[in-house]
Write a protein that binds this DNA or RNA. Sequence first.
DNA 1: ACCATAGGCAAGTGTTCGCTTGCCTACCAA
DNA 2: TTGGTAGGCAAGCGAACACTTGCCTATGGT
Lengths: 97, 97
Amino acid sequence: MADDLFKALADPTRRRILDELVERNGQTLFEICARLTTKHGLGLSRQAISQHLAVLEAAGLVHTRRQGRCKFHDLDTEPLEHIVTRWLRPEAPESTP
Amino acid sequence: MADDLFKALADPTRRRILDELVERNGQTLFEICARLTTKHGLGLSRQAISQHLAVLEAAGLVHTRRQGRCKFHDLDTEPLEHIVTRWLRPEAPESTP
DNA sequence: ACCATAGGCAAGTGTTCGCTTGCCTACCAA
DNA sequence: TTGGTAGGCAAGCGAACACTTGCCTATGGT
């Protein structure tokens, strides 16, 4: 469960994709593909991005909705909220100088 | 920089080690080794844990201090605080039904 | 009907990762 | 000084991962 989440975040390209979705939610595969190549100079194939999106969806970070022949990808940051609280115990505040 | 952090969190054994350090800070390698085998039933060698601790230290999640022939491992949750805020944009609250 | 667009499936490949095994160094006590 | 304890270095191996290539399925426009 948490395994998929952390594994999804482990790859820098997938984190870039999350960045893109934060900036503009509901993008299609081709949109993401284009923005990654133009803005970040990543020369990745369409399939590579598609597989990354599948990993992100398995982790619950991205939800998809089909509409005709287009598939839009929506970011879901909810899983992210839990991953940190696992190690941030409540009794931690130690006066942080 | 962030790469080391996410890569460190990608492995379930390393996350277990963080759990152990939350429960009891400043453990030695042998202590962590023993607790992982007894409590979680992980049959891992000493080197395996040592290498995991090196990865955690490279990520800044664990700091070490030597004292004689013992090396104590201290948890540092500070890097964790930044990883979520990367994607949690401030303008996100959209009435969450 | 035709063709272009948007995406999916599956096999193959090179690299990275996790782990083991074997030997070596530093510290402490008898 | 000898022996035991705590840890480190490095080579090697199998599995998982990221990415490519090639072909295939739908949907939409003309």
